[in-house]
């Protein structure tokens, strides 16, 4: 499955928080996916307007201890996994 250029949360994707702050999404296949910090930010920011690179830029700007390239690689992997799980979809290719 191709990684979307402008990822968007799947419609009506259930997103919840555990009492200790971790984010959980319920994938369309019924799996409860507990997200790490970066993945939870990706899910919240994935509105179909931002590209993967723009997501990485926003996250990198608020992240210390990792280069922009490292954050981009992380975001690309997360977007790929969440797309595979049906939690993100492609809002359309960049024009």
């Amino acid at each position: 499955m191709a990684r979307p250029l402008r990822p968007r949360r799947a419609r009506d994707l259930p997103i919840r928080e555990l009492p200790d702050g971790e984010t959980v999404v319920l994938s369309p296949s019924g799996a409860a996916l507990v997200l790490n910090g970066t993945a939870s930010v990706v899910v919240y920011l994935a509105d179909g307007q931002r590209t993967v690179e723009q997501l990485a830029d926003e996250i990198a700007a608020n992240t210390s201890g990792a280069t922009r390239e490292q954050v981009l690689a992380d975001v690309e992997r997360i977007v790929g996994e969440l797309t595979e799980a049906g939690c993100l979809e492609d809002a359309g290719r960049a024009g």
């Binding site: 259930p14 555990l18 200790d20 959980v24 319920l26 409860a32 507990v34």
Partner: peptide, 20 residues
């Protein structure tokens, strides 16, 4: 708690948002 949730949810008999 995250591991507990994933283990319990892994044994669900009906996967819906209310159960989650």
């Amino acid at each position: 708690s995250a591991a507990a949730l994933q283990t319990m949810w892994g044994q669900n008999r009906r996967a819906d948002a209310a159960g989650l």
